[in-house]
Design a protein around this nucleic acid. Sequence first.
RNA 1: GUGGAAGUAGCUCAGUUGGAUAGAGCAUCGGAUUGUGGCUCCGAAGGUCGAGGGUUCGAAUCUCUUCUUCCACCCCA
Length: 457
Amino acid sequence: MSNTEKTQVKKIIEPRTLKGFRDFIPEAMIPREKLIERVTNVYRSYGFCPIDTPVLEYLEILMGKGSEETDKQLYRFKDSGGREVGMRFDLTVPFARFAAQHFAELGVPFKRYHLAKVWRGENTQAGRYREFMQCDFDTIGTTSVVSDIETAFVINDILEKVDLRTDDAFTKFKVHVNSRKILNGALEKLGLSEQATPVLRALDKLAKIGADAVVAEMAETAGATEEQARSILEIACAMGANVEILERLEAALQGSELGLQGVAELRQILDATREAGIPTERFLVDVSIARGLDYYTGTIFETFLDEIPQLGSVCSGGRYDNLAELYTKQKLPGIGASLGLDRLFAGLEELGMVEKKATTVDVFIPLFDAQLTNRYVALGRGLRQRGIGVEIYPEPKKLGQQLKYADKKGFKLALVLGSDEVARGVANLKDLRSGGQQEVALELEALVRAIYDALQA
RNA sequence: GUGGAAGUAGCUCAGUUGGAUAGAGCAUCGGAUUGUGGCUCCGAAGGUCGAGGGUUCGAAUCUCUUCUUCCACCCCA
């Protein structure tokens, strides 16, 4: 190697991505898009409509809610015009701004979904990144329990569709439901309303750290007495069938109008899911889930995969009284939830529910004989117009090598066409999974029919 | 942000007490096989040993700094 060549080699910039940011190769992106498509279809089937908002917002919009944590995690900078801007760290805050700005033209109730990337400058961990996708859906402008019910349905329907290998319903998940009204009612009765945030934050960790540690944390961060803490836990730990838990809660919350209202709402949601034919074990009343965010005021949802609960919630949400209070005097109550696509996807991969494929079409046409190139491209186009995706190999390599490529990428069928076949007016349709092949008349309609039949099999 | 562990080929990893030109399997590309993939055999290509400094006659190996990844905490999807 000459010196000049060496210098040039040194000039190569190391290809790399930022910590917590990822590339997606086709094998990862194809199933990801499939999941996105399924999620979107569920949203649309309930009448949710798509919106989008800018990646960058004025810093004051994003910092409005200003908890210390979000401030630290916010990607912020000055743009070239000297404006203080930030990248959205969730889709709820931009939606609140959006709703405040446009509610007059949109009208209520308004149902939107929003699938987009968000950014948080926090430390990475398995299934946790600095750039990740959220899939929010919200219904605003109504306090009707119908919205709570349909939110529960949507969560259920999405999760049923996550097995990407098949169209069959996935069933190994649980939606934990609770109501902030129940929690607040209980806190009220115990005289802990003032310390709601630290108490609930501690309670939220129950499954993870155990009862004693929760009591200790409540004492430390909220100044709760052991008796108060134990009472909260007693209510939160209610085990058994949903109906029993609700009955016990009802008894424990006598005198708290708010708490009883929460119980009644949960009861109505559960009744509705049962009547709609959703398996009753799918939804669990779980008074220990509290959610970190303090803007929730009613029903709360968290969703766990049965086989990997330690992954955390893959779809969470709840009801709030006033989404956009920072940006408008108009009161906008609503309910919504967010699917953590990247976390869910990490779980699906772990469970082997992601089909590996590196092609977006099923049919492969090798460039067997360069003399027949125009024949191949015309045939490919004809099939595409009939709804069959086709890829044509661009180079006249040996047939074996072309088929090897097709095999590796995961094509299902190869349409082999050489001068022999053309002379005889046929094409060879090869099934790449079984290895079998059949001759089909070299005529578009016959080929379309044969391909559809082969793909069904 | 805090604490712990680890970074050697695209991936998984070996590399002895500090010693010569850093290895294997899988994957990639080519050949055996000019009309048929998966199996087999042969070959090729692929390395700033994460990066930068220090100790040393000599560093993948020891040391410091830094970056990255993983785990736990915090918080969250």
